[in-house]
Each structure stands twice: as C-alpha cells, then as structure tokens.
C-alpha cells in the first residue's frame, strides 16, 4: 500500500536555510545539506526546498546547492521558487532535483506547465497553488505570495485552476490554504476535500499543521497523498517519527524508516 508522505519544507535563500516570520525577517537556520540530512534521519519521506530569494525579484539563482543536496540525500526532493522556463527547470533537474514546482510563473503563463511536462514527463512537474477563501465564499488563487507587497488576487477559482493544471500536465498539486497557513489550527480540510474531488493526480496539503491530530484529520477527511509543513517541524513542536507513530496508530499507512 502506498504510504502517505510527510514533507518538511525548507526555505532557502542565498544557499542557506532561513526561517521567516510571516514572510519577513529571515533568520539563518543553517546549511542546506546539514538540515536536509537531519530531516532525512528524522524520518522525512521527501523534502521541498523553496527558494524564496528567487521568484519575487525575478532573478535566476545558482543551483550548486541542488547538486550538493542530491549527492548526499537518498530520499526524493523538490525545488520550488524561481523556475519560470524549461531551461531553468532543466538546470535544476540535472543538478539532481527529482521534481520542480511552479506557482506564479504557471499562473502568468499556463503553457509553462505543458512545456515542462513535455520536456521532463508529468512526474517531475508539481504545480503549487496559494488559495484564499473570499467574502463570496469562493476559493481563489493568489500569485506572487513570496513577497507580501506584490501578492495579487486573481479572478481564477482555485478548483478551476486545479482542473486546468492537470489538463496542462501537472503530475502533482500542492495546495497551500492561506487562511490556515501559519496559524497552526489545522489544515483546511473542507477546501482540501473539495480539491481532492477534482484532483486525479497526487495532492499535497499545505498550511495549518499544529498537532499530530491535524495530520490525521487531513489524511482521513481530505484523502490527501501527502502533507507539507514547515514551522511545526523546524521548531521541534512535532517530531516526525512520533507523528508517524501517531498516524500508524490511527490506521494511516506511513513509511517505517
């Protein structure tokens, strides 16, 4: 049986892992490779590196660190942030990343998703979506969320974008529910269940993890394939091994090691 995946997300800037408070005031957390291996040993099933320095300024980045991670890590990892064309994606994948994730660039130019899928196969292409519930009750996407000053509300409904992204070639969708992000009151299972209903490819939940029970709820109530979390793991509030024991106790299949 396929295991549900636990995926810590590490913010990377200038070749270091950083921690931001509400996207600002970044604090150095340490060397990328050291932290990647620490999370591997702690039981992470996969890692996401979000290059926060990249996208908002519209610059390309140095991917030497991707190769360093790839050479030492024996679990899969995905690189997000700053990938807006096939050439950059190729550089990241050839440096050793298993998947690349696109968010704002895919909203600006949806054909990018098809180009990436054609070039590398859908299994490498993750579409990240930042979504917010609006006063009319609809979930709609936000772009440029890496920089609070540039974040834009788009008229695109989240569920419509999930359907379109799959049609274009997304092999996985990461849905970050901004209402619950950083609040630690649980994943937005209602929105994620609605997303699940229209998502035939793997769906990863993001935003809101605070307790082990929140993970149980999102797997049980929204049937997501994986969960992404940052602060609860970085702070040590939740240890991945203990989380997995809890999930296993609730009948949720997770990886043993």
């Amino acid at each position: 049986m396929l295991s549900r995946r636990i995926i810590p997300c590490l913010d990377v800037r200038g070749g270091r892992v950083v921690k931001g408070v509400r996207f600002r005031d970044h604090v150095d957390m340490g060397d990328i490779v050291d932290l990647a291996l620490r999370y591997r040993d702690a039981g992470a099933d996969e890692l996401v590196f979000y290059d926060i320095g990249a996208s908002p300024q519209g610059r390309s980045v140095d991917y030497g660190w991707v190769e360093r991670v790839s050479s030492l890590l024996d679990i899969p990892f995905c690189v997000a942030g700053g990938i807006r064309d096939v050439a950059t994606a190729r550089a990241v994948l050839h440096a050793g990343a298993d998947k690349i994730s696109v968010n704002t660039p895919a909203l600006e130019r949806p054909a990018l998703v098809s180009e990436l899928a054609d070039a590398f196969g859908v299994q490498c292409v993750v579409v990240g979506i930042d979504s917010l519930r609006e006063p009319d009750g609809e979930w709609r996407v936000r772009s440029h969320t890496g920089d609070p000053d540039r974040t834009r509300a788009l008229p695109l409904r989240t569920l419509d974008w999930i359907i379109e992204a799959q049609r274009l070639g997304a092999g996985e969708v990461v849905l970050n529910c901004m209402d619950s992000d950083g609040v630690r009151r649980g994943y937005d299972t209602k929105q994620l269940a609605a997303a699940r209903a229209v998502c035939g490819v793997p769906l990863v939940a993001s935003g809101g993890a605070g307790t082990p029970q929140h993970f149980v709820e999102v797997f049980r109530d929204a049937d997501v394939d994986g969960v992404l979390a940052a602060s609860v793991f970085h702070s040590g509030a939740i240890a991945i091994m203990e989380l997995k024991r809890h999930l296993r106790g609730q009948g949720i299949e997770v990886r043993d090691e």
Binding site: E46, E172, P202
Partner: peptide, 30 residues
C-alpha cells in the same frame, strides 16, 4: 488510486534472488 504512482510503497517478494538479498518483505521504496 492516483496516477502518477508517486511515493513510498511496499515491496512484495515473488521469488528469491541475490539481487534483493537483505531486502525484507514489506520494505518500502520510492
């Protein structure tokens, strides 16, 4: 059952072979 099949899944032995020596029944691979 989502496609692509993505993640860690269990391996089930079908026959003995030196290639899989030391890999336990039910071991997981990506």
């Amino acid at each position: 059952v989502r496609i692509p099949h993505m993640g860690w899944n269990r391996l089930e032995p079908m026959r003995a072979d030196a290639l899989v020596d030391g890999i336990a029944s039910g071991a997981q691979a990506y």
